[in-house]
Amino acid sequence: MASQGTKRSYEQMETDGERQNATEIRASVGKMIDGIGRFYIQMCTELKLSDYEGRLIQNSLTIERMVLSAFDERRNKYLEEHPSAGKDPKKTGGPIYKRVDRKWMRELVLYDKEEIRRIWRQANNGDDATAGLTHMMIWHSNLNDTTYQRTRALVRTGMDPRMCSLMQGSTLPRRSGAAGAAVKGVGTMVMELIRMIKRGINDRNFWRGENGRKTRSAYERMCNILKGKFQTAAQRAMMDQVRESRNPGNAEIEDLIFLARSALILRGSVAHKSCLPACVYGPAVASGYDFEKEGYSLVGIDPFKLLQNSQVYSLIRPNENPAHKSQLVWMACNSAAFEDLRVLSFIRGTKVSPRGKLSTRGVQIASNENMDAMESSTLELRSRYWAIRTRSGGNTNQQRASAGQISVQPAFSVQRNLPFDKPTIMAAFTGNTEGRTSDMRAEIIRMMEGAKPEEMSFQGRGVFELSDERAANPIVPSFDMSNEGSYFFGDNAEEYDN
Rank of each mutant, 00 (worst) to 15 (best):
S413V: 03
K422T: 15
D290Y: 14
I138F: 12
E292M: 09
D127F: 02
R236S: 05
E220S: 05
V463Y: 08
I63G: 15
V186C: 05
R208Q: 06
F39L: 09
I36A: 04
A153D: 05
V280T: 12
Y289T: 09
Q364T: 03
L68H: 15
I365N: 12
R175C: 10
S413P: 03
K87M: 15
A366Q: 10
G404Q: 05
A427N: 15
G158T: 02
P248Q: 13
P322M: 07
W330A: 04
P161N: 08
R162T: 05
M137W: 07
V463T: 09
Q168H: 08
Y219A: 07
K113W: 10
D16N: 14
R221D: 12
S217M: 08
I347P: 09
S407L: 06
Y487M: 11
R361E: 10
L110Q: 05
E53N: 04
L166N: 14
F429Y: 15
I25G: 07
V100A: 14
D340I: 11
N417K: 12
D240F: 12
L172R: 04
D160N: 12
Q4F: 00
N368T: 15
D101R: 08
G288Y: 10
A337H: 08
R243Q: 01
E64V: 05
L256Q: 09
S3V: 15
L166G: 14
H324C: 13
M43C: 03
A323Y: 03
P95Y: 04
S377I: 02
D112T: 15
K184M: 12
Q58I: 07
F39S: 05
I365G: 06
K351S: 09
Q405A: 02
M159A: 03
M66K: 02
I96C: 04
G5T: 02
A387Y: 06
S457Y: 08
D240M: 12
G93Q: 06
A493S: 02
T157I: 14
N76H: 09
V312Y: 07
N319P: 14
E80K: 01
G300E: 12
A181F: 01
G17Q: 02
E46I: 02
L166K: 07
R195P: 03
F420P: 03
F488T: 09
H82Q: 07
S326T: 14
T151Y: 07
C333D: 08
R150D: 10
Q459S: 00
